[in-house]
Design a protein around this nucleic acid. Sequence first.
DNA 1: CTGGATCCGCTTGGATACTG
DNA 2: CAGTATCCAAGCGGATCCAG
Lengths: 133, 133
Amino acid sequence: MSQRHGEPPSPASSGIGHTCTAREVLDRVGGKWSIAIIIEASRRPVRFTELERTVEGISRRMLALTLRNLERDGLLTRTVHPTVPPRVEYTATEIARELYEALVTLTGWAERHRAAVAAAREAYDRRQGDRRC
Amino acid sequence: MSQRHGEPPSPASSGIGHTCTAREVLDRVGGKWSIAIIIEASRRPVRFTELERTVEGISRRMLALTLRNLERDGLLTRTVHPTVPPRVEYTATEIARELYEALVTLTGWAERHRAAVAAAREAYDRRQGDRRC
DNA sequence: CTGGATCCGCTTGGATACTG
DNA sequence: CAGTATCCAAGCGGATCCAG
């Protein structure tokens, strides 16, 4: 990551602008686990081990990394309760919850066209399969 | 790719459902170049070399690969004009254009909170910088 | 012009052991 | 419990050469 994410030169409406902002957000939540964590943390404060169980398939390392990044971007709040054993809770910020709202649009698209995409993919693969055999 | 993308077991409203559909679409367009290509192809039919110039930074290999995948998922239409030299045009399908509409919601989120995220990141980095030095 | 095939470095990410 | 540190494998992606 050699580039700071300050204000881009605002390439305006050439399509490049939309591309950049789109990539900006996708780089942030396009990770394999970000969405799942944001959704969980939007429902209630969650603890580390809790996420390790809930977000099925995630490794301890990736959980820690993703949490760090989300916290860094101000999407998660990390609260340490100085008890023993230590208790750390992660909560989605208002920004993150708004992000989730925005994502609903995308899931809507996925649900509407899931069948069509699957069909297209199958058709494509069948064509290729014929060519190769 | 060892897993077919058929109908998931529909885990309903436990948050897992949204996570899955969200990941489904992000896996499809979360690639480094998919969005840029979709946007370009939504504006007009585009040729291979044209994209190579427009989508700045993309390599020939990744352009070809991304085009294949998008075509496979029914998001792009590939039209070959049997001329010499060959002329191939890619066009966004209706589904892809709807996807772009959905993405606008996301870019809206990015634009609204860009400053906040940048600030959070800077604050976080400054805190860490102090600790490490 | 439009790609496919190959080589290879770099990053991503899993498994595990260790620390406070 | 809540992580960090280390090792290592798989795959993403760039560069290049070649073909239709």
